[in-house]
């Protein structure tokens, strides 16, 4: 789809929107009747997630009760968790002139993960500029020696790339193998039955990977933010 001379990947737009809506509904509905006194189990669950992210922040020494950073962390965790799991139960692929997969994990596309990574690194730069001024930010590229500027510049680029591509690679690899196993269906009943057990195991493993990668992404985000706050 091309709009304003920009291309849009329709399947990613659909899946990210659905993931965002799911996250919003979960977060909103679970805390609709939130109370200070004894919380019900749904509110308790949301509070558990918030406390979990707060613990991640504490362990990466973000000594900040900044509401925006907490919100970002919790939203990231929930969004990535949902997005990572979206492609596991099934995927919808239309086979035509251009085979298009309509339903998959949005995080199995590097556009999504790299955008998130770029946003986070840009935010850490923004924090640095706001806290210490533009001069400090600019000079920090030439520390400790002038000569190390290329290294510092590459470091920023590399953190962005690794942050985004780590998530993408894990989820994409999972989906590739799932698709490969699922394609066994077209080879007859016997082979499908044979494949169903590794399929189950791999799906469980994909869930595990999805959870771990969401956790790692949030942890690294907090580490990068802490690095700038210090």
């Amino acid at each position: 789809m091309v709009l304003f001379h920009l291309t849009f990947d329709l399947s990613i737009i659909i899946t990210t929107t659905i993931a965002a809506i799911i996250v919003f509904l979960i977060a909103y509905l679970l805390t609709r009747n939130a109370t200070v006194s004894v919380p019900n189990k749904w509110q308790n669950f949301m509070e558990w997630i918030v406390e979990f992210v707060k613990d991640i922040m504490k362990s990466s020494m973000v000594a900040s009760s900044n509401l925006f950073i907490i919100s970002t962390g919790v939203t990231l965790l929930m969004y990535l968790f949902i997005a990572n799991l979206m492609g596991i139960p099934f995927s919808i692929i239309t086979v035509g002139e251009h085979p298009v997969s309509w339903w998959k994990s949005p995080t199995s596309d590097a556009h999504v993960t790299l955008t998130l990574a770029i946003m986070i690194i840009a935010y850490t730069h923004f924090i640095d500029i706001r806290l210490h001024g533009f001069k400090h930010f600019f000079v920090s590229f030439f520390k400790p020696f002038m000569v190390l500027f290329p290294l510092n510049a590459v470091e920023q680029l590399a953190t962005t790339l690794t942050l985004g591509l780590r998530l993408f690679g894990n989820i994409y690899a999972g989906e590739v193998l799932l698709a490969f196993l699922a394609s066994a269906v077209s080879h007859g009943i016997f082979i499908s039955l044979l494949v169903s057990i590794p399929m189950l195991i791999w799906q469980a493993f994909c869930i595990f990977i999805g959870v771990i990668q969401a956790y790692i992404f949030v942890t690294l985000t907090m580490v990068y933010i802490a690095h700038r706050l210090a």
């Binding site: 291309t7 990613i12 990210t16 929107t17 965002a20 919003f24 509401l67």
Partner: peptide, 22 residues
């Protein structure tokens, strides 16, 4: 365009959740 859309929807999600939930 995809990246832009992704950035916009995530930002909107963060701000809505911050305002309504967190």
């Amino acid at each position: 365009g995809t990246m832009l859309y992704q950035a916009v929807i995530f930002t909107i999600l963060v701000f809505i959740l911050k305002k309504l939930v967190f």
